[in-house]
Design a protein around this nucleic acid. Structure first.
Lengths: 213, 213, 213, 213
DNA sequence: GATGAATGAGGGTTCATTCAT
DNA sequence: GATGAATGAACCCTCATTCAT
């Protein structure tokens, strides 16, 4: 609407490239907000288009269908989160510290983007088209950071050699999701620090007293 | 409009209670099968009515809407499963055995009714109307069995007194769900015995070698 | 709209059967008029529903889709026309009279239902779903009346034994369609009697003078 | 909006006439192929533009709309065919030979360009915008070749003076179309020589044995 | 002259729910 | 009590056409 002419910059032949990206971003952002607020089914393309100040049809130039738009929204989110985790994963003096750091980071993601997390958990991971999707690939990359950490812990002699990294990964992610779910859903709060501490402790040391191990 | 009184109005035996219950059961069963097979959205009332050999309209005499029908389907399922768990929970000589037994039982439920589990996880627990529903109450009862077990473990001196029963509950349920999800979704198999063993071991003893605990 | 209660008749269990047929007829009639007036593409289901004083959705209870509705409109028409032709085909003292009668009848159909004829010629026979349709079967039955007439003419020694009935059938129907098309399209008039005479004469005697045959 | 005058405006060689014609030809050719392959509705401007290696917008510089493009495609085709027929029409020693030649030629056109013939018969001649179009004028020219032949036959005393050239024209074209339609639609084959023989014989001599003429 | 991004109207179809019979 | 015919709102997606660049 506001037809503001950019007078700066040399006249690149691709003025539209920026504009185009701007449109795409606007659509993704609008979709992100709308899907988050109303869920996938309840959100309409028309609504998203209006929010992005774009025509309905334009959405279909950049996204092949409504579902694809949802997936792309989450892909953008997931890419950011995965990159973060992969960068940060090596921090900590020993296994336990690194594990603690990773769990904390994971919890932080839930707090920072709870709407998108809910969207992912309730509309995508649960759906039939998740298997084989790009999102699943990202999810696997995300999970592999933890798996690698555990393997490294085993190699360093800090983790029992008989534990299955895959199992531990499932336990941790499952646990964190379960713990965070009420918060993600809009109920209560999530104490990241305390949760990270207790989960780390449980994973590392178990719950039984020595005699019962 | 036609204010003609039908003379053929017999004493109205009013359908027998059993027959009525039979209809309800048939509807719930048909809905269970249809929702399981096609998911909530894709299943239509007409389809369920046909499967139950009942008219579309009759469903609305017993269930207030399609969503309510789904909830009731899962309620019936959950009631059975909760009763089982509550009955079985006390078995085992000590905490660890009882925990193992409970985890195993939990996993068995996923294997025995994976379609209904998927339905619950992907269509109900994730939805907005879950909070405050009867299903959630059942879920809580189910979860409390585990919480009680842990509290008992603490009381008996088998479990560290500082662990949060709520946390452990979340970790275990989250873990089992995460581990079972691929199977529930139709991929691969689930080795109940082995999974119960490893999860129990992890929860009880943690993953770190003594020096790193 | 007018909720008129039929007080007459014994309370048949199927009062709705008439009503239902009435609805179907109304839809077919409305569709017939709308398709004729605007063509298949340009006619909308909403428009037809309005004309039939019926909801959009009801059309889909009786017809599986818009195309099916068009086909059924023409089927009803064609069934009537075929029945007529089959009944009437035997009239006439000899082959030539019978042929003349049939051609005349055929032309009469174009005059009596030119809108439906145009619909058939321009929207159905020309389309990809015509082959193998019920309409095509009716068309064949219609055409076979003529073919049978010619075969009979051959058997009676009135028609040259070497002519292909199929060819003659194509020539006659093709000719009549071509001749009638401008009229069907809304241009000019069609002199049934004169056309029947000249076409019959041409088919029977050819156009060349004896020396050039 | 940006009222900045571009200084790089060279003398504008204005695209050369040949290049322009090349573009037009490419578009017509691409449209011809696409319309033939998928029909008018199913073919999209974008698709045609891609096939012609031209932008969508450019098509609208040379053709006022999609329909116009279709008409021009068929016009190009028809012009070629008409020219052929007009050139060839005089061949043959007598009326019958010339008629035979013309019918054969007409049939040959169906065989040589059946896709375009189908396009013409199913998408153009049948449509509302046919009347008064350039295509119709070409069609008339095409038809007049036959009409003229018949008039000449009458003048030479080879054709009965009482036959209507217009009628004969309709009969022949209608017949050939009807006979060719299955082939044009993709079913079966068309034996040009045999068909030309039998149609010519029928038109010249009729089908009845002498006594019944 | 050429591009292709942007528009936006348009319509077939589904299906939960109701209510006259 | 039971039926199932009827409703009608709601929405994704396509694509001819335009016009700023």
């Amino acid at each position: 609407m506001a037809t503001e002419t950019r007078g700066d910059m040399q006249a690149m032949p691709v003025i539209s490239a920026e504009r185009m990206q701007g449109r795409i971003d606007a659509i993704v952002e609008a979709a992100s907000a709308t899907f988050s607020a109303k869920g996938f089914e309840a959100a309409s393309i028309a609504e998203i288009a209006r929010a992005a100040e774009v025509s309905d049809g334009l959405i279909y130039r950049y996204f092949s269908n409504k579902r694809d738009l949802l997936l792309r929204v989450l892909q953008v989110f997931y890419e950011r989160v995965v990159a973060d985790l992969e960068t940060e994963s090596a921090r900590g003096a020993n296994f336990r510290e690194r594990l603690h750091h990773l769990i904390r980071r994971h919890l932080t993601n839930f707090v920072a983007d709870r709407e998108l997390c809910r969207l992912f958990l309730s509309e995508v991971r649960v759906a039939g088209d998740y298997k084989g999707s790009d999102i699943q690939a990202l999810n696997r990359r995300y999970a592999n950071v933890l798996k690698a950490l555990i393997e490294d812990g085993i190699a360093r002699g800090e983790v029992r050699p008989d534990v299955s990294p895959r199992l531990v990964r499932d336990v941790i992610f499952g646990a964190v999701e379960h713990i965070s779910w009420p918060y993600v859903t809009g109920d209560g709060t999530l104490d990241v620090a305390a949760t990270a501490d207790t989960v780390t402790a449980l994973i590392c040391g178990g719950i039984c007293l020595p005699a019962n191990t």
